[in-house]
Amino acid sequence: PLVRQRERKNAVFWSPEKGWANPHEFENFDAVIHLAGKNISSGRWTNKLKDEIFKSRCRDTWFLSQVLMRLKQPPKTLICASAVGIYGEGFLAEVCQKWEEATRGIDRQKTRVLHPRFGVVLSPKGGMLKKLLPLFRLGLGAIIGSGEQYMSWVALDDVVGAISYALTTPSLEGSFNLTAPHPETNASFSKKLAKALHRPLFLRIPEKPLRFALGEMADEMLLDSTKALPEKLEKSGYNFRYPTLEEFMQRSF
């Protein structure tokens, strides 16, 4: 793995903040998978946090690309994360666009470059779902805003499965949506989660308090609608383990 602590054994040290890496340690890899980035929900989007979100994706990916471009034996495949936020407007869309552009200098004749555009990754052990579960189990789950906004989601198992599949599928290249085939509206997601946990759902959070509390983050992460489908990934031959939210919840709870 790529690490920022020199003490780690059996790892490649780099410091994108300082622009330092030893190119010799990057030689002869079959593939490089770069998914790192500052958590976009780690707090209200202050200018400082937005700068960290941007740099941890765009600057670090650009620096990694510069290192790989100079190798005598570059990796055959580079998988660099992106997100379905690229289809929106505002800060996240700009970040995602610059994120993907950061790999432009890599020679596609030598290295196959893929940008999986992640939806909301679901796992009871982390991320958004882990934060929601205690509230829904107490009967305090809520529909957000109108509830009509779509959320493109994907199970963590399918993230792992799709990345593994992409590594061994040479015909798949470029950007593709890594989202389940059946996106959900916020209302349908909330109702299905409450039902899976055998709890009622009667609360609704209006848009104005959310915007007051979270600013632009409320619109881009909670209120905007994103309905991204995995057409390219499915056409290439990938079969989702959890194509529907019901199947995911039945096996998770």
Rank of each mutant, 00 (worst) to 15 (best):
L2W: 04
V3L: 09
V3I: 06
Q5W: 13
Q5C: 14
R6T: 08
R6V: 07
E7D: 09
E7Y: 04
R8F: 12
R8W: 12
K9F: 04
V12A: 08
S15F: 01
P16A: 10
E17S: 15
N22W: 03
P23S: 05
A31G: 05
H34L: 03
A36P: 08
K38L: 04
S42L: 15
R44S: 09
T46S: 09
K48D: 12
L49D: 10
L49K: 08
K50M: 08
D51A: 11
D51C: 05
E52W: 06
F54Q: 01
C58K: 00
C58I: 00
R59T: 00
T61G: 06
L64H: 14
V67S: 08
V67C: 07
M69H: 04
R70T: 11
R70L: 07
L71M: 14
K72Y: 14
K72Q: 10
Q73F: 08
P74I: 06
L78P: 03
I79Q: 10
A83Y: 12
A83C: 15
V84P: 01
V84Y: 01
G85F: 10
G88R: 00
G88C: 00
E89S: 11
G90R: 07
F91Q: 02
C96E: 00
C96M: 03
C96N: 00
C96G: 02
Q97W: 11
Q97M: 13
E100N: 06
E100A: 12
A102P: 04
T103C: 10
D107Q: 10
D107N: 15
Q109P: 07
K110N: 03
K110Q: 11
T111Y: 00
R112Q: 06
L114Q: 01
H115S: 13
P116E: 04
F118W: 02
L122T: 07
L129A: 03
L135D: 14
F136M: 11
F136S: 04
R137H: 03
R137S: 11
A142P: 10
A142T: 05
G145W: 02
G147R: 02
G147M: 11
S152H: 08
W153K: 01
L156N: 08
L156G: 07
D158L: 01
A162D: 02
I163M: 14
S164E: 07
S164V: 14
L167G: 10
T168H: 13
P170G: 11
F176R: 00
T179Q: 13
T179S: 14
P183T: 00
S188N: 08
S188W: 07
F189G: 01
K192L: 11
H198K: 14
H198P: 09
R199D: 05
P200G: 13
P200N: 05
F202K: 13
F202R: 15
L203V: 15
L203Y: 08
R204N: 15
R204Y: 15
I205V: 14
E207G: 01
E207C: 01
L210V: 03
F212M: 14
F212Q: 10
A213Q: 09
A213Y: 09
L214R: 01
G215P: 02
G215K: 05
E216D: 13
D219P: 01
L222C: 06
L223T: 04
D224A: 02
S225W: 05
S225N: 08
T226V: 15
K227A: 12
E231L: 07
K232F: 11
K235Q: 14
F240M: 10
E247L: 05
F248K: 04
M249N: 09
Q250R: 14
R251A: 10
S252Q: 13
S252E: 13
F253L: 03
